[in-house]
Amino acid sequence: MSQPEIVQSILDGETVVSRVHLGGEDELFVTPNRTLVYRAEGLLSDESVDEFSHAAERVAVKEGRRKAKITLDYGLDGSETFGLSAKRLDEALQPILEGVLTSAGVVEDDERLIEAFRFSELTFVVTEQRVVRHIGSAVWDEDYETYHYDDVTDLSFESGSVATTVVLTVDGRQERFKTPNEDARLVREKLSKALCEYHSVGSLEEFRVKMADAQEQKAAESERDNTNFGEGPDPLSANPTELTEEPNNSTREQKSAESVERQPVEATSTTGGQTESEPVESTTTNVADAADLGFEGSGFEPADESVPTDEDIVAEIQSLREVVEAQGEQIRYQQELIEQLIDELRRGR
């Protein structure tokens, strides 16, 4: 699918990694470094392109029933916001968030974002190499936590009546956070698959076996490295070095709200116009007296020329029909304009 000429001129050969349809002819183009929002010509605006850099310190989302807004905060350089339809929000937000995380150095340049989950004040991002977790009103800012798959030794899920707890074992400690039950299956699927593919295993059971073998091998190597028989001709007289290990296990639990609050937005209603036709008052002309016209006693009555003929009635009906059809066409045209205006307003114009 070709790109609008105005978008091509701004891209200047830059690679587009994601393209999202926003409704109508409006589109969103995401490159590694920036996001372009293309607005086609409409009733409210001319054709235009807005550019948003991914070098943001904070990403925030405001979501309503019909409309949503994405805000990129650049610190001292201010912030920029653009609107879009609420049903397009998740599709547009994911590539933008990937670009921001890459620009901030949270993920590698060639590391792809697999899925981004938003649970009220918890944002949980699954990439090819790590998990990024952020708690707060923003989708992401500089107060975040990341867990690389190299440091993960176990993954489990604890089901509850309302929420499911994801338990990540990282460097001997457990990191816990909750997800709504309606999203738990997708979280389990995406996270388990990413972790297993990174460690080249087929399932979580295989992953646990691999981790257990690695722990045993590491413990054996540590024991060999820390065994010392001393120096000199009499190794039996030397005192071996005492080995001490300090447990470093801690558990902390982060809780997140289990439902996403939504604020209702008033729907727009449109009342079409009605056309009323008033009856035409007809006037009846009295027939002249036959005696006055000289027909008295002849047995004939004079013809009244004021009475319309069949041809006159047909012509009148046809004329009225043309008027009604013209009014109906005007109403349909006005209705199309109203529907187009509503559609543009819903798309955040």
Rank of each mutant, 00 (worst) to 15 (best):
T165E: 05
V166C: 02
V166E: 04
V167I: 14
V167C: 06
T169A: 09
T169G: 04
V170Q: 08
G172T: 12
Q174A: 10
R176T: 09
R176M: 06
F177S: 00
F177E: 01
T179G: 01
E182T: 10
E182L: 05
V187L: 08
V187F: 12
R188K: 14
R188L: 06
K190H: 07
L191C: 00
K193P: 02
L195E: 03
C196I: 09
C196V: 03
E197P: 05
Y198H: 12
S200D: 15
L204K: 06
E205P: 02
E205Y: 09
E206M: 07
E206R: 13
V209T: 10
K210A: 06
K210Y: 05
K210S: 10
K210D: 05
Q215M: 07
Q217T: 05
Q217P: 03
Q217S: 10
A219P: 11
A220H: 03
E221C: 01
E223T: 06
E223V: 09
R224A: 07
D225T: 02
D225R: 01
D225V: 02
T227M: 01
T227I: 04
N228P: 02
N228I: 07
L236K: 09
S237F: 04
S237N: 11
A238M: 10
N239M: 10
N239E: 15
P240E: 03
E242S: 11
L243I: 12
T244E: 08
E245H: 12
P247F: 07
N248I: 06
N249V: 15
N249G: 08
N249D: 14
S250I: 02
T251I: 10
R252T: 05
K255D: 07
S256K: 07
S256E: 02
A257L: 09
E258N: 06
R262T: 11
Q263D: 10
Q263W: 15
P264S: 02
V265M: 12
V265I: 12
V265C: 13
A267G: 13
A267V: 13
T268N: 11
G272F: 15
G273T: 08
G273S: 06
G273P: 12
T275I: 14
E276T: 15
E276K: 13
E278P: 00
S282L: 07
T283G: 01
T284Q: 09
T285W: 02
V287M: 08
A290E: 14
D292C: 04
L293D: 12
L293I: 15
L293W: 15
G294C: 04
